[in-house]
Each structure stands twice: as C-alpha cells, then as structure tokens.
C-alpha cells in the first residue's frame, strides 16, 4: 500500500519565541500512507512544528511542502484535503454535538456523513448533548471525528489518545490502522510509547527543537540496544548533548 512518495516535506524549519529557539533546523519527510510519529517531552517543540507545518504559526526559516502545496499560500485548496486535530480543542459555548458536526461539515465542498461517523465513534446517543457535557474521552473522540470528517488524505493528530480509557484507546488504534489501510497518511504525536510502537511506521524524537533520532521504531530500539521503545525514548531524551 505504501508508495515512495513524500506527502510532507519539511526543510530547515526554524522557529524562535524571542530568545528561545523552539524548533531548530528541522528536516523531515512523511511518505504517503504511513503513520508518522513525532515524539518528545512537553516543550520539545512538537506542537510548534505541527503549527508551522499547517501555517497557523509563521516560521522564521525553512520550507514546508504539504501535498505539494505551501500551507499559508494555498490554504483553501489544501485544507479540503488535510484533517487536523489540535491538542485541546475548544468549541463555542453551548454548542451541541450535532451542531458542531453540521457546522464543520459545511466548511468543506464534500465531506462524510457525520451521522455514520458518530455511530463508528460510539457517540450517536450524544448528538443532542452540549459538547461541554461530554467526558474527556468523548470530547477527544469528537475532535478526531471532526478531523476525519472531510475524508482527508493526510491527518494531523496532536496527542491522539490523551484522556481515553484503555478500551477507547484500542478502538482508536483500530480506527487509525483502518485509515492507513485506505491509504491515508497520519502524522501524530503521543506520549504513550506502547501506542507509538504499535501504530507508527516511522518515528522521530525531538529534543529542545532538534531531531535526535529518526527511523522505524525497531531501528530506534536497536540503535541504543534498549529493550523497548520506552527505554529507547528515555535513553535518547535524557542523554545530554556532549
């Protein structure tokens, strides 16, 4: 299923907040149909990287090519084909589940039937509830649902399963694998190494805005002779730069 075609190409991305360098000359490529995981501690620059890729933050240096387009230039065309779930999604006060689905669907020239998706995500009985009444897990599922609504070719999921219980997490994994089998590319961040090891085809670990290692989860584990991805992750993120 996977082809050797880069759907996302980032070169020399650099972003500073005042004196703080949040992302430093980052290069990465994501191939069509793969699940790519961007890892790192809180504050390592994951969200900033995603936001620069999507064009919601202006980068200081570098180039981003997403589905062959430049995000801030071709915004309208590009985001018909890109789904995004931000870390912590907020919605308008007093909006109901059904209303946010309808509203989001109206932004796209074509989108999936949200009722079918609500069924798949086991949220059908919450349609008439206010979003603010949902549990953390339900809200998380809703934000993923809204990201996949336009049938995107690439989906960005920032902290995909945070707040989900073990069963809901497994369901989400299955859903993500199913998307991959349909040829959808996924770019995700996560703090759960079991999830990353299970789902991701390739990963990249960030530390203070720079990539310290990238490759398949197996390569990363082998590279430092660790027993699991969690050990390897800790090895790389705690290793002081010499």
């Amino acid at each position: 299923m996977r082809e050797n075609k880069a759907v996302l190409k980032v070169t020399g991305l650099r972003k500073c907040y005042g004196d703080l360098v949040a992302v430093d000359h980052l290069n990465l490529e994501v191939m069509k149909g793969e699940i790519f995981g961007l890892l790192g501690h809180n504050g390592a620059g994951k969200s900033t990287t995603i936001e620069c890729i999507l064009g919601t933050k202006k980068m200081d240096e570098g180039k981003v090519s997403l589905l062959g387009m430049e995000p801030h230039k071709d915004r309208k065309k590009l985001f018909e084909r890109v789904g995004v779930q931000f870390q912590q999604s907020y919605y308008q006060d007093k909006i109901k589940v059904k209303e946010i689905c309808e509203l989001t669907a109206s932004f796209y020239s074509k989108s999936q039937d949200y009722k079918v998706l609500l069924e798949e995500f086991e949220l059908s009985d919450k349609q008439k509830n206010f979003v603010s009444e949902l549990s953390g897990g339900e809200r998380q599922k809703l934000s993923v649902l809204l990201a996949v609504l336009p049938n995107p070719e690439i989906i960005f999921l920032d902290e995909l399963t945070t707040g989900l219980d073990p069963k809901a997490r497994r369901d989400m994994w299955k859903y993500i694998e199913n998307l991959r089998s349909k040829g959808v590319t996924l770019f995700l961040t996560s703090h759960y190494m079991d999830e990353v090891e299970y789902l991701c085809d390739r990963i990249c670990i960030l530390k203070r805005g720079s990539i310290i290692v990238q490759g398949t989860p197996q390569d990363v584990i082998k590279g430092c002779e660790a027993g699991s991805l969690e050990d390897a992750y800790l090895f790389y993120t705690e290793k002081e730069a010499m």
């Binding site: 999507l54 064009g55 919601t56 915004r75 309208k76 065309k77 985001f79 018909e80 890109v82 995004v84 931000f86 999604s89 907020y90 919605y91 308008q92 989001t104 932004f107 796209y108 020239s109």
Partner: peptide
C-alpha cells in the same frame, strides 16, 4: 476557535 478555522477551507 479562530485558529481551528484557519486549518479548514
């Protein structure tokens, strides 16, 4: 919410 709108068409 304005930011979320920026990543839609």
């Amino acid at each position: 919410i304005l930011k979320r709108f920026q990543v839609t068409p």
